[in-house]
Design a protein around this nucleic acid. Structure first.
Length: 641
RNA sequence: GCGCCCGUAGCUCAGUUGGAUAGAGCAACGGAUUUCUAAUCCGUCGGUCGGAGGUUCGAAUCCUCCCGGGCGUACCA
């Protein structure tokens, strides 16, 4: 049990006498923010005082008089307006830490198991993975590992995009533009090229059609703005119009660029002229595929293994494994039924030729069948929910997906609940957009985005260089595996230590940086501890069962031990919030406190045998905490580096 | 138009869901190594938490308005 829980349990009976809402009062019992306020603080006296119409310090005094903590802490102090500060007794910390040594799970008690499906990564097979795909994979995998560790039954599912409009583009491209030799050599990159090409041509025609409309809209706005005859009064309106104009102009630039790209290349212009209705034709190929057309099915079956294998290469490098990879195509047989069911239940109605679910309070409909008869990802997602509940008995469903799709998930969850899945707990585990160095969202369609695989390779190469400089004595195989741990771990950590909800500025150098708040820092601390244990010829299992006790003789030992004792809180916080950065922060702080301890306290050179044993225990315990913690984030922890 | 999100140190970001003097990393500057790994440690500098009101014992956090930015918004996923 964590110390925090223990402390709260002590306060519980006392607070129960003062309020009906004990839990919220207990929520104000926290780790102290600052060492000078002790180890824990209870901030509940102030709000309780108001309810009782008494001075806060009087209520605080009442709590302090009644709370029973003599065995584990000094008599609590009252400070400021009524803060209650608790300082733990060293003897109690020593005992708690000694018990921790014997615990395989480092103090974490399993939670009541629930059945989870966690849906993450979900790349589109038509496009090669790029850095934008990293967040879902890395955050999702960390949550996957943490949920399993705390005791849940987890099925990880890679919901691959293998059935959408892009596939029609590939098929169309393949039928019309394929370079057979290139396809034989490198099937996946040829398919990617075809996708980009078709997409580019579609955009071109689209831009040409839309441009006049846009120009018209711009002219209207200009007229509107010049018609304003009282600029002072209508300053706000003018600002809005101007914003609107610059927005349209940006779009126009975008179109102009697309048109220019094609126009500047004679070959591309020729292609564009030869296929004026390419978008329609590509969509037609998608429809044929969905409809069971033999040729398109054959192509799909031919392409898929190649595409999946290419993805697998990236997952191998990242150390990510899925239980299932049921792509969109898997649900094709169920889609028609979903729509029928929705219609029968009166949930879906036809509108403008499309079948839609209209949900109160939402302007946009949830479209489950387009007017051309094709189904959408809304349909697929509903079928997926149904499948997961029926096949796996799923109780909690997590979707680790970009925050920009929050509206989709809001509608999905609402519709699913109305369809009869009201008992399922749904969470859109949203994350912020990946931004470029300019602070603008990464463009996925532009050709110049950083490919994920080359990024990973670059990271490992840089790490190898640093490993060779810093640890020339390691043999080559060890250097290589350390470089992988440091390179890949660094990239993952760069992502995981941010709050997932914030936008994320992609910075190559920062991502590959190996000093400061990085995975490398934590890995290095871990390696140093392992180094001590190795150098001292310590049999770690024997050490743990030796009956040696943790003893506090220095402030930095105390600080480290308190941190080790709150591992459970850190892990449970990740589960409660579905935020891996809470664990990343915890590990950095732990490594930090260890390094201070390392600086202040000698271990192997300590002459007092009992203190030496105690410090060895701390090394062992800290190393286990960091290794396990990093593992939960999907980051390797080499024993030496 | 409607909806959602964001604005914290020069830069990148935390901030325990309303708590005490707002914290890290990077960058800059100064120091530490005959001692278990210097991929390290210690210190200094750096803030009108976008602005203005309000709520209360107490606000970066909650409410209102304003400024600035991002995203989504009927048949892409």
């Amino acid at each position: 049990m964590s110390i925090l829980t223990e402390i709260r349990n002590r306060f519980r009976p006392v607070l129960a006498d003062l309020t009906a809402d004990v839990d919220s009062a207990l929520g104000m019992v926290l780790r102290a923010q600052d060492g000078k306020f002790g180890d824990f603080q209870a901030n509940c006296a102030m709000p309780l005082a108001k309810a009782h119409g008494k001075p806060p310090r009087e209520i605080a005094q009442q709590i302090v008089d009644r709370v029973s903590v003599e065995d584990l802490a000094d008599k609590p102090d009252i400070a400021g307006p009524g803060f209650i500060n608790v300082r733990l007794k060293d003897s109690w910390i020593e005992e708690a830490a000694t018990q921790l040594v014997a615990d395989e799970r480092l103090g974490h008690q399993r939670l009541a198991a629930k059945k989870y499906v966690i849906d993450y990564s979900s790349p589109n097979v038509a496009k090669p993975m790029h850095v934008g795909h990293l967040r879902s994979s890395v955050i999702g995998n960390a949550l996957d590992r943490v949920l399993r560790f705390v005791g849940h039954e987890v099925i990880s599912d890679n919901h691959i995009g293998d059935w959408g409009t892009q596939f029609g583009m590939i098929i169309f491209g393949f039928k019309n533009f394929v370079d057979e030799a290139a396809y034989k050599r490198q099937p996946v990159s040829e398919l990617a090229r075809l996708y980009r090409l078709v997409n580019q041509l579609c955009d071109y025609h689209d831009a040409k059609v839309e441009r006049p409309n846009l120009l018209g809209k711009l002219a209207d706005l200009q007229t509107e703005i010049s018609a304003i005859n009282n600029p002072l009064q209508q300053a706000r309106l003018i600002r809005k119009l101007k914003a609107s104009i610059s927005e349209q102009e940006a779009l126009l630039d975008d179109y102009a660029a697309k048109i220019a790209t094609i126009a500047s290349s004679p070959e591309l212009s020729k292609l564009a002229d030869s296929y004026p209705d390419i978008a329609v034709q590509a969509r037609h190929e998608t429809a044929k595929l969905h409809g069971g057309d033999a040729e398109n099915q054959r192509l799909w079956n031919e392409f898929m293994p190649e595409c999946l294998q290419a993805l697998q290469g990236v997952y191998d490098k990242l150390g990510i494994k899925f239980d299932k990879a049921l792509g969109e195509s898997y649900y094709n047989p169920f889609l028609a039924d979903v729509v029928t069911k929705l219609q029968a239940a009166g949930l879906a109605t036809e509108s403008d030729g499309a079948v839609c679910v209209f949900l109160p309070g939402n302007e946009a409909p949830f479209i489950v069948r387009k007017k051309d008869g094709a189904f959408t990802y809304a349909t697929t997602d509903l079928a997926t929910v149904q499948y997961r509940v029926e096949q796996f008995g799923t109780q909690v469903m997590l979707y680790v997906v970009d925050t920009r799709q929050s509206e989709h998930f809001k509608l999905l969850f609402e519709t699913a609940k109305r369809m009869g899945f009201g008992d399922v707990e749904f969470h859109h585990v949203n994350f912020g957009t990946v931004l470029g160095n300019d602070g603008r969202p990464f463009k996925t369609r532009a050709g110049d985005t950083v490919g994920l695989e080359s990024l990973l390779d670059e990271a490992v190469a840089r790490a190898l260089q640093i490993v060779s400089e810093n640890a020339p004595d390691l043999d080559d195989a060890t250097k290589k595996s350390v470089a992988e741990a440091v390179g890949i771990g660094g990239i993952k950590y760069a992502d995981l230590h941010h709050n997932r909800e914030s936008d994320y500025k992609f910075d190559w150098d920062k991502m590959l940086s190996m000093s400061g708040d990085t995975a490398t820092y934590i890995q290095y601390a871990n390696a140093r501890m392992n180094g001590i244990l190795r150098k001292g010829n310590v049999d770690r299992a024997a050490l743990r069962s030796s009956g040696a006790r943790v003893r506090l003789t220095h402030a930095s030992e105390r600080s480290l031990v308190l941190q080790l004792l709150s591992f459970e809180d850190a892990v449970n916080a990740v589960v409660a919030e579905l935020k891996p950065n809470l664990l990343a922060q915890y590990l950095f702080e732990t490594a930090n406190r260890f390094t201070t301890f390392y600086n202040d306290c000698q271990v192997l050179n300590e002459t007092d045998a009992a203190i030496r044993q105690s410090r060895l225990l701390l090394c062992d315990l800290t190393a286990r905490t960091l290794t396990l913690g990093l593992e939960l984030l999907g980051i390797a922890a080499p024993a030496q580096m």
